[in-house]
Write a protein that binds this DNA or RNA. Structure first.
Lengths: 225, 225
DNA sequence: AAAAAATATTACAAAAATATTACGAGAGTA
DNA sequence: TACTCTCGTAATATTTTTGTAATATTTTTT
């Protein structure tokens, strides 16, 4: 079996050293990042099999990092923290973390939890770019290109497009899109969708009046082709 | 969304009560087993969506129970214990547990970990497709293809077709179709059916005058072939 | 604090879907 | 044959849903 690659995102040198030694002697290949920015860019260029993510990073809350990573990284993510705060824990899980350990943790337990998660997620292949016709979405950099040229999207426009593209070919309901982009309490605000779908079409369709990519499915939702 | 069913295997009445109340108010359906034997037999007859398994059971070590369940149960299993013993934890993970909590645990954290595991286990759900001759219905994406080409259906047309196809080969009464698609108060409005069946036939039949897929069963209903 | 960008709100026109109405064809029956 | 019942179909009306522009407000940037 190939060695699993583990990315450790943590700014504390001590922890990095300790974890590197532990994981390497357990047969893992270890990559270190000392900031969220580095961690995200490494994940983009060389997706690891598992990520250990510290919550207390200098350049971001870790929770934000988790969200950003989860937009396209599908492998297991284990959160590490010194604070044993329940709110943080709940928040982390709901943002897509797969496990949460409080420092100082027992290395044997960490290894066991890693084994368990790696066993679960052997089949999912991480996809960090989406290509369809003349469109190319880079989920890592949150960049959309049309015929090679960068098209500027606002945050909301990008979020909408990212979800639609991830369900390519399938109908995505209005309620789902609203929930994912605007939040659970916006599921009835379908006029938001119409306006942002219209803006997206202006930007990505050759002829926004005859959309080829974002198809309307009346009284249900939209479909990305 | 359907309620998830959680099976709690624990011999302590207090814990059972506490967990039942917590989980039920969080929207789960709870089933209780007070022994390993009962737990295994319930899992066999009505597989739950998730199992909470205590390690200190009177009729078996819990670890054994875990192994026995894992021989065929594939859903998430969370271990509970009063002993915070690393060997036990490692052992549990390597026997196929998906998480491990030491009592007393915080209920918010437990719920978050459960949500996380249930999300994982539901996303490895295979696509749900119906194929009959040259027709292919993708129930998840709400998409109909005829000879590979997407055929656009309105919401009502799709709902009608979905029900008919799910009862393939059997007669579906008019009243039933009307109730399912239009609602319980429309059971007598059979002319709605005629019109929408006609539209469906135009879209899916090679020759709508000689339908091969949607067969009329005079004065009873319709049958999908 | 001002300017710019993004998003939210409002209002109305356009398009699509659905409901309604009307009529004819075919099968079975007296 | 005439009658009744059920189904299919076309044409039209109504309702629902969607698209779009214009403006207001909020947020972000400078």
């Amino acid at each position: 079996m190939n060695k699993h690659t583990v990315l450790i995102i943590d700014d504390e040198v001590q922890i990095q050293k300790l974890l590197s030694i532990t994981l390497e002697s357990a047969g893992y290949k270890v990559v270190s990042a000392f900031s969220l920015k580095d961690g995200i860019s490494i994940t983009g260029s060389h997706p690891p099999d598992l990520i250990l993510l510290d919550i207390g990073l200098p350049d971001g809350s870790g929770q934000d990092g988790l969200k950003r990573l989860r937009e396209w990284y599908q492998g297991p993510i284990i959160m590490l923290t010194v604070m044993n705060d329940e709110k943080n824990i709940i928040h982390a899980f709901d943002n897509g973390a797969n496990d949460f350990l409080t420092k100082p943790f027992r290395t044997g337990e960490l290894l066991a939890r890693m084994r368990s998660l790696l066993k679960l997620s052997t089949q999912i292949k991480p996809e960090n770019v989406f290509v369809s016709g003349n469109l190319r979405i880079d989920y890592v950099g949150r960049i959309l290109r049309k015929n090679g040229e960068i098209i500027k999207l606002t945050a909301t426009e990008y979020n909408l497009l990212a979800i639609l593209s991830k369900y390519e070919g399938r109908i995505v309901t209005q309620a789902f899109l609203l929930k994912e982009v605007w939040g659970p309490s916006y599921q009835k605000e379908s006029h938001y969708l119409r306006i942002f779908i219209a803006q997206l079409r202006k930007k990505i369709e050759d002829n926004p009046a005859l959309p080829k990519h974002i198809i309307t499915e009346a009284s249900i939702g939209y479909r990305f082709m």
